[in-house]
């Protein structure tokens, strides 16, 4: 009855550290079907912008414990997400194409600690995690394009030295 959980990585090199890469639909659709992700992205971008969670000031307030806003946003998002995933599992809901929904398990590795801390540093400096970086560029904060390119460079550098890092 329960939703199948992908608990083994079939392709370690490219997919192990990224749960998001594990979860590929086996179905093939015409390219225009991708438009639903564009619409979802637009909605996500509007929400992030209007909730001001893409603001450097809001991130500062969060870490200086001067505002509840960010805690409220993340906390209520997680609760709604949890409830939704619970319902999906409970009723074994399928996708609109009738596929079973697969929820990947994440395995612990030390990267979540070291990488997590480094990301925390960058999050406070730029005031943006990756989602907000994209949204900020859209709002006209063109200099964030430099941050985004730099983030891509950081990702590339990670790929380059990954074998040498503790995981």
């Amino acid at each position: 009855m329960s939703t199948p959980i992908l608990d083994k990585n079939t392709d370690f090199e490219t997919r192990s550290l990224d749960a998001i890469c594990v979860n590929t639909s086996e179905l093939h659709h015409p390219v225009w079907h991708l438009i639903k992700y564009l619409v979802a992205g637009i909605c996500f971008g509007i929400i992030l912008t209007k909730a001001e969670v893409i603001s450097w000031f809001r991130i500062q307030e969060m870490f200086r414990l001067e505002s509840f806003h960010m805690y409220g946003v993340i906390g209520s998002a997680v609760l709604v997400g949890m409830g939704s995933v619970w319902l999906i599992k409970k009723f074994s809901l399928k996708t609109i194409y009738g596929e079973e929904i697969a929820l990947p398990k994440k395995a612990f590795n030390k990267g979540q600690v070291y990488g997590g801390l480094l990301f925390g540093f960058g999050w406070v400096m730029t005031g943006a995690c990756p989602g907000p970086m994209y949204a900020l560029i859209g709002t006209g904060a063109s200099v964030m394009l430099v941050s985004l390119v730099s983030a891509i460079a950081g990702t590339w550098f990670y790929g380059l030295i990954r074998e040498k890092l503790p995981h």
């Binding site: 550290l17 990224d18 749960a19 994440k106 590795n109 990267g111 979540q112 070291y114 990488g115 997590g116 801390l117 480094l118 990301f119 925390g120 540093f121 960058g122 999050w123 406070v124 400096m125 730029t126 943006a128 995690c129 990756p130 970086m133 430099v146 941050s147 985004l148 390119v149 730099s150 983030a151 891509i152 460079a153 950081g154 990702t155 590339w156 550098f157 990670y158 790929g159 890092l165």
Partner: peptide, 13 residues
Amino acid sequence: GGFLVGFGTRYAG
């Protein structure tokens, strides 16, 4: 800051 976001998020998965 941007570099750390890119490096850290991928390291953390």
